[in-house]
Write a protein that binds this DNA or RNA. Structure first.
Lengths: 194, 194
DNA sequence: ATACTCAGCTTGACGCTGTCAAGCCAAAGG
DNA sequence: CCTTTGGCTTGACAGCGTCAAGCTGAGTAT
């Protein structure tokens, strides 16, 4: 295949980059290890040296994506004012923004197939992401009888459902997606203390 | 492979049944045409006689699933009282119930890959399903400034997000899923006229 | 009763896939 | 200069979706 000189300096990184490109480019789940290897300029079996299985490679890509999502949420939260619900809403909008910008990645992030990859740094990244949401819900005043868990369910349900429907073209909006998302989220203010 | 006598009476139906079983049994997207054929007792190329591609077979299975979902929604709506929001909420609960009962099917129903199969009876079934929701939203009083489209987005977003999160085990609930769903939906009553 | 037709399935093949086993090769160490 | 060894390649295997060609048996015509 490729002699040593032709190989990329950092094969692992090259494979991750290739996988990301293919995941975002190809339909659904059509990314193949062999296509990654070709794109990265290594032999078809090179990926096995870094990732025990195809799912493990994808899981590694998704771990990184999860961290990017988390960072976007944190940035948005910190840029919002002091009102707890405003901060929660900012997290939601960042979440929606990420989902709409990276539909393929988003779908895989929450598909449960790759979260179960053993040794996954993805599960940890996912937990971290969930914690950011959880903390924000906990910091937001809630009416009596609404547990934190229920608050998380309500907030997450809205943004997750919205991204899923819009990404798959299931829904026709009469305004820009982000505006519609803001409307959906703003409607939750009354459900919380606001 | 199998001589004529060993073949099922209705090959097409046998293939659809086999596909359904495998979709609900196997992980994610691992159902294969050849496994369907084996399960149905026909040769590996028999499916091609009824469905031009793998996606077309799946799409046919999903069209049927869509119709079942629609019927469940209609039954729930008709069993609910006269209050428009109660009827809408009943539709939502039926939707959630179907999703939780058939997670694999549900995921594929809204994955956009199979909706695009040409000549799909699935697209028609999906539209019919969407119309039932749309009519119910239209029949529910909405505050000024909330278009029917926005109402659909809000209602659908909630149930779709809920099913997605619960099915993939992303969320931990402190009550039975259906009870949690009811809470999420009930919270929307105020957003509508109720 | 015999020959023909043809729908409906089977058989076989192709290139693709993920994964495993074995081999090669350059760089490092003695 | 020889040996070791980590890191990739080569090769193979079974399974996949799909296409092309062949078989088979029921129905029709003669």
């Amino acid at each position: 295949m490729a002699k040593q000189a032709d190989r990329p300096a950092d094969v692992r990184r090259a494979l991750l980059d290739a996988a990301l490109r293919l995941i975002e480019t190809l339909p659904e789940d059509k990314m193949s290890l062999r296509a990654c290897a070709r794109l990265a300029g290594v032999s078809h079996a090179a990926p096995a040296h870094y990732f025990p299985t195809r799912a493990a490679l994808i899981s590694a890509v998704l771990a990184h994506a999860f961290n990017q999502l988390t960072e976007a949420m944190i940035r948005a939260r910190d840029a919002a004012g002091d009102d707890p619900f405003d901060r929660l809403k900012a997290i939601g909008l960042a979440y929606v923004g990420f989902g709409l910008a990276h539909p393929a990645l988003y779908t895989m992030l929450f598909s449960s197939t790759y979260l179960q990859v053993p040794d996954g740094e993805m599960a940890e990244a996912g937990n971290h992401c969930g914690n950011v949401l959880g903390e924000s819900v906990a910091a937001t005043p809630r009416p009596g009888g609404m547990t934190i868990t229920a608050g998380i369910a309500m907030a997450w349900t809205a943004v997750h459902g919205f991204v899923g429907l819009v990404c798959n073209g299931m829904i026709l909006l009469d305004e820009p997606p982000i505006a519609a998302a803001e409307r959906v989220l703003e409607q939750q203010r009354s459900a919380f203390g606001g």
